[in-house]
Design a protein around this nucleic acid. Structure first.
Lengths: 177, 177
DNA sequence: GGTAGATATTTTGTGCTCAAAATATTAGTA
DNA sequence: TACTAATATTTTGAGCACAAAATATCTACC
């Protein structure tokens, strides 16, 4: 009756690493979210809120859209975050006369102060452990993540039939660890 | 080699890699979210929904809590996802006689079918590129991520020795001293 | 039997997240 | 001036995500 064996491996043929990579990413995402909630109890700021404040401090006054890009979030999302931060008095929004479509965001004194007392954006445990790594190891992890980002953000590689294994991106500086 | 932990300027002193790592993670998270939304238009399932279905298929009937663990989400979150999947007729929930606290979740025929026609959980572009890597490269990325997960999930490493700067004038927001 | 504590799930409340639509403003053009 | 298109932000609607509280059930010990 089952007309075809429907070999479940046909499209499920994922390399074990593929599953594993996804699983790791989910766990990282979750760990960050959990830490964000702990942050709230220690300094009344969530992770995304703190990230916005930090970029604001780093880049100075800037329009919503550019802030959104800086923290890798959509403008719509940032609007909500800014609402809450403004409500808390940590920043100010104003439309410049020159172009009233824009909204320039500025850190307030209170915002700068909150930032000074805020813990790091990543778990303290992670921060400690990461800093304990050799510069080479840090760099290696950093590069690995960037590689994943690049593969992730690269869209669809067209209709290109991908069969070209071509060559390894050959990482030259493999040794120093 | 081991850089002595000089008193690191207390708060500003993040290694450049630290910033970069966080930025990469944010971008990865975002890329996954964006793909999840594209998924909806192609198969009416979001990423988390698809992830739940897949685990369900992989592990068979199982209680909510175990499913939550399998997808690295909290039970509360999974409840909402299950609501929608059940509504769509892709799975069934029932409380076994033996223990009516539990809720056993089972894939329905429609669920199994939807799964067969669903695209991969990661961007197609990523999947293609990742598969094009050598086994060694895949493994390397996989390991790097797992290392980060481990550092991320390791809590606080307490007062553990190892690299304590001895004094660390902890002004960390531990309330008013 | 009855009551306390443990276990499993759902509900509640808040925030993050996005696309798409709505709004407001500016610039270009007839 | 009026009309159109482009730009910048906010609103809307839906889903994800969690902790904490609420609910229901089971187990253990009296």
């Amino acid at each position: 009756m089952s007309r075809a064996p429907e070999n479940p491996e046909i499209d499920g043929s994922e390399s074990p690493h593929e599953e594993s990579v996804l699983r790791s990413i989910r766990r990282i995402t979750r760990a960050i979210d959990l830490y964000s909630r702990k942050l709230v109890s220690s300094c009344d700021l969530t992770g995304p809120q703190l990230a916005c404040l930090r970029e604001l401090a780093r880049l100075g006054e800037l329009p919503t859209t550019r802030l959104a890009a800086a923290v890798s979030l959509s403008p719509a999302t940032v609007t909500g975050i800014l609402d809450r931060l403004e409500q808390a008095g940590l920043l100010e929004r104003q439309r410049p006369e020159s172009d009233k479509r824009c909204v320039m965001v500025t850190l307030s004194a209170a915002g700068r102060d909150a930032l000074r007392h805020a813990p790091p954006l990543l778990q303290d445990g992670f921060t400690q452990r990461f800093r304990a790594l050799s510069a080479a190891s840090q760099s290696q992890l950093d590069r690995a993540l960037q590689e994943i980002v690049a593969m992730m953000e690269a869209e669809e590689l067209d209709a290109s039939p991908l069969l070209i294994p071509a060559e390894e991106p050959a990482r030259s500086a493999s040794g120093s660890s």
